[in-house]
Design a protein around this nucleic acid. Structure first.
Lengths: 197, 197
DNA sequence: TCCATCATGTAAACAGTTACATGATTGC
DNA sequence: GCAATCATGTAACTGTTTACATGATGGA
């Protein structure tokens, strides 16, 4: 009689990533997970304690991870390991590569800003783009270094990931140059309409 | 004596986009904004009413938009227009192109899944990638059509934006092919560690 | 007249950030 | 012994999604 819709719920990106980390590194404390994220060059998750600890508890109550053992020192910490259900859920999440949410283009602050460039005066548009291009070149340099360091350390998957990020930076740079060319080719007046009908 | 930290607060991506839309289309009802988002091919915001209406009210209490006039029909709707403060805030937001949050690589579900590929058996990895490549090709086709339709309609900025999205799809496709090649070059055993120390 | 859809909302749940609290350990 | 940091958390707030409610309008 009891509805047995066991798990049904999907994992968020962060839950997936945490399961993944526990899987590849073995049992982890929340703090170790936290550091793993803050050390990585990507800034897409702050991995603040206010996020990690509740997330870990959530995964535990869903039966995807469990306490493997306590930490030895005076602190009341625990090492969490995957359960078989967690392993399955992780494999499904990773295989979700072909789902629409994974396939569709992720939002990009560059695109969403350029989309409204007509509200700026032409001179200001160009300044902004030029500054962004400089910043991107800088970022590209650091991304390349990171890729190289991962390659040197023989981390195949990490190298692939960093290469992916690097390709994205390169493409965004190329695109911003397109934008600059288009701006120069056709200076397009700015609109000021505040209260036009 | 009263602290006059007038606005100080930054705009979220969505707030920026809403201000931008009001700026380029003139006074809008929340519903029109909603449709604008749901009609666009990008799926990055559901633009549900539960998000739009509070957001509009938020912008209004911050003095960035104001009611231009009521709608004529029986419904109790309002058209919102930018205030001068809103115009300024929008211009600042758009110029924020070069800020670190805009420059850093946006998170990508493809990358975050491939990062944990070692938990899958080699065969399953390849299947997943192949399916994702197919789905991406499909997506690319539709993105190209959209770019063409925007170009045909003479929307310069919209064309640029769609080109940007298209370049991203192309790059993601190229990268997934890299991944496939690497997988084939070096089939790398899967790890099953559930409870290894 | 009745049904789909247009249009405007509200309520609850949820995930994540920021800021704070607190105790243990390590290095000087 | 004292400061920095390591490590584990909690509380309040924010923004978004999901689900629901409700009334108006237009076409069959």
């Amino acid at each position: 009689m009891i509805p047995e819709n066991a798990n049904s719920d999907r994992l968020t990106e962060l839950e997936g990533a945490v399961l993944g980390m526990i899987a590849v590194r073995g049992p982890c404390t929340p703090y170790v997970l936290r550091r793993e994220f803050t050390d990585s060059p990507s800034r897409f998750w702050s991995a603040s304690s206010g996020a990690v600890y509740p997330l870990v508890r959530r995964l535990a109550t869903r039966g995807l991870i469990r306490v493997a053992r306590k930490t030895r020192d005076g602190r009341e910490g625990s090492l969490y390991a995957l359960t078989p259900a967690g392993s399955t859920a992780l494999a499904e999440w990773v295989s979700g590569l072909d789902q629409p949410e994974s396939i569709s283009v992720p939002p990009d602050p560059l695109r969403s800003r350029v989309a409204f460039f007509e509200v700026l005066e032409p001179a200001r548009r160009e300044e902004a783009v030029v500054r962004a291009i400089d910043a991107l070149k800088d970022h590209l340099e650091r991304t390349r270094e990171y890729t190289e360091s991962e390659r040197a350390r023989g981390n195949r998957f990490e190298t692939l990931i960093s290469q992916g990020a690097q390709r994205m930076v390169e493409t965004r740079l190329v695109w911003l140059n397109d934008v600059l060319l288009e701006l120069r080719a056709c200076p397009h007046p700015s609109m000021s309409r505040e209260d036009t009908e």
